[in-house]
Simulated scan of single mutants.
Amino acid sequence: MKGRNMSRWRDPAKDPRQAPKSNLITAEGAARLRGILDHLSRMKRPQISAKVGEAAAQGDRSENADYTYNKKELNRVIARIRYLTTRLEELQVVDRLPANTDKVFFGAFVKLEDEEGGTLEIRIVGHDETDTKKRWISIDAPMAKALLGKEVGDDITVLTPDGETFYTVTSVAYTAPSAG
Rank of each mutant, 00 (worst) to 15 (best):
K2D: 00
G3L: 01
M6T: 05
W9G: 01
W9T: 06
R10F: 07
K14F: 15
R17C: 08
A19T: 14
K21W: 02
S22K: 06
T26G: 09
A27C: 08
A30D: 12
H39C: 07
L40V: 09
S41P: 01
R42N: 14
K44S: 11
P46N: 01
G53T: 00
A55S: 13
A56F: 05
A56E: 12
A57T: 06
G59A: 00
E63G: 05
N64C: 00
N64R: 02
N64A: 01
T68Y: 00
T68L: 04
E73K: 15
L74P: 09
N75S: 13
V77T: 15
V77M: 08
I78H: 10
R80Q: 15
Y83D: 12
R87M: 13
L91F: 04
Q92N: 12
V93L: 07
A99I: 07
K103Q: 11
F106W: 03
F106N: 10
G107T: 10
F109N: 14
F109W: 12
V110R: 01
L112V: 03
L112G: 04
L112D: 05
E113G: 01
D114K: 01
E115T: 01
E116N: 03
T119C: 00
I124R: 07
G126D: 00
H127N: 14
D128T: 06
E129V: 11
D131K: 03
D131I: 06
T132I: 11
K134T: 05
R135K: 14
W136Y: 15
W136C: 10
D140V: 12
A141Q: 10
P142I: 12
P142Y: 10
M143H: 05
A146V: 11
G149H: 06
E151L: 06
V152D: 06
D154Q: 04
D154G: 06
D155L: 07
D155Y: 08
T157A: 13
D162A: 15
D162I: 09
G163L: 06
G163V: 00
E164M: 09
E164Q: 11
A173G: 10
A173D: 12
Y174I: 08
T175Q: 14
T175W: 00
A176I: 11
G180R: 09
